[in-house]
Computed example of a mutant assay.
Amino acid sequence: MADVARLAGVSGQTVSRVANGRQNVDTITRARVQAAMRQLGYRPNGAARALRSGEFRSVGVIVFELSTFGTKSTLDAIATAATERGYSVNLMPVLAVSRQAVADAFARLAEQAVDGVIMMIEAWVLDEVELPVGLPVVVVHAGGGHYDHPVIDTDQVQGARQATEHLLELGHETVWHVGGPSISFAAKQRRESWQQTLRDHGRAVPPALTGDWSSTSGYEAGCRLAANPEVTAIFVANDQMALGVLRALHEHGRAVPDEVSVVGFDDMEEAAHFWPPLTTVRQTFSDIGRRSVDALIAEIRSVDHQHRRVPVPTTLIVRKSTAPR
């Protein structure tokens, strides 16, 4: 900084103002200082600035299941929202979900000096993990237990009810379900909401089939459902499995939507280009990312607010895969 000040013919304080983005420097002087910085290869020392201010402008994200559409979309939204707020993102994947693995991820993030952590881990793991004291934490897509931290999640119950009621309103006697893996809290909430919606409308509740979020598992479940002539409406817990269900119905000669209506969940970009285009429940991942980053920054800055669960609303997107019975 002293070298830049000498070359630009200004004080060290002026260089500091320019380096920190302060506005109380005139345009000509700022340009001269920036030119000196470029000539000397000067870059502000983020670590030194963090030691002085107590803020690293960096957040950690601990995540499991990187391959799923929902996780990737949420991570993208978090990264975008954090960048807009001037924070970098340090991603820490957890390859084997266990209490020790999550504790190790926290320890590694602490070594890399983050201001706070966003957790994207299932509730059954978080319920067994002792989160570190003093480190701001926000929980995303976990559900389950009661945490002393903000929880941001899609309103899974609302979304499943929207899907099920849409099919009932089209005149179908009942709705069959292809759910996600049993360890997933989101899958559990969607399944239970589907069941409760059918009960609320006085309809029979068929046995649910279980997949693993993949198109392959959807296809396998779809083959079983296609062989049952009583099946006229299917709510699938995500769009990727719904793609497999559509293929299975086609191969078994069950026309969609003339004979069987299908609804997915997520509204992935490709859903509009399935054949037929998929009716689905849209999750607003950009909203989830923004809310989680805003909540974490509020925690970092000790803004007074109640730790609470924030449900992000869903929207039913009606396309050509559903029709009256």
Rank of each mutant, 00 (worst) to 15 (best):
A2C: 04
S11P: 00
G12W: 04
R22T: 02
R22Q: 12
T29N: 07
Q34P: 10
A36Y: 07
A48W: 01
G54T: 07
E55Q: 15
R57C: 06
V59T: 03
I78H: 08
G86A: 08
M92C: 13
V97G: 05
V102S: 11
A105Y: 02
A110C: 00
Q112N: 15
A113V: 02
A113K: 15
V117M: 11
A123F: 00
A123S: 14
E130L: 13
E130S: 14
P132S: 00
V133R: 14
V140H: 00
V140P: 04
H141L: 14
D155N: 08
V157E: 04
H166G: 00
G171F: 07
G179E: 00
S184G: 14
F185Y: 15
Q189Y: 05
Q195E: 15
L198F: 09
R199N: 11
L209R: 12
S215H: 11
Y219C: 03
L225K: 05
E230A: 14
T232N: 11
A233H: 03
V236F: 13
D239Y: 02
M241C: 04
A242T: 01
L246N: 03
A248E: 10
A255Q: 15
D258N: 15
D267I: 01
D267P: 05
H273C: 04
F274G: 10
P276D: 12
T280N: 05
I297F: 00
S302R: 15
V303K: 14
Q306Y: 07
Q306N: 08
P313T: 13
V318C: 03
S321Q: 04
A323T: 10
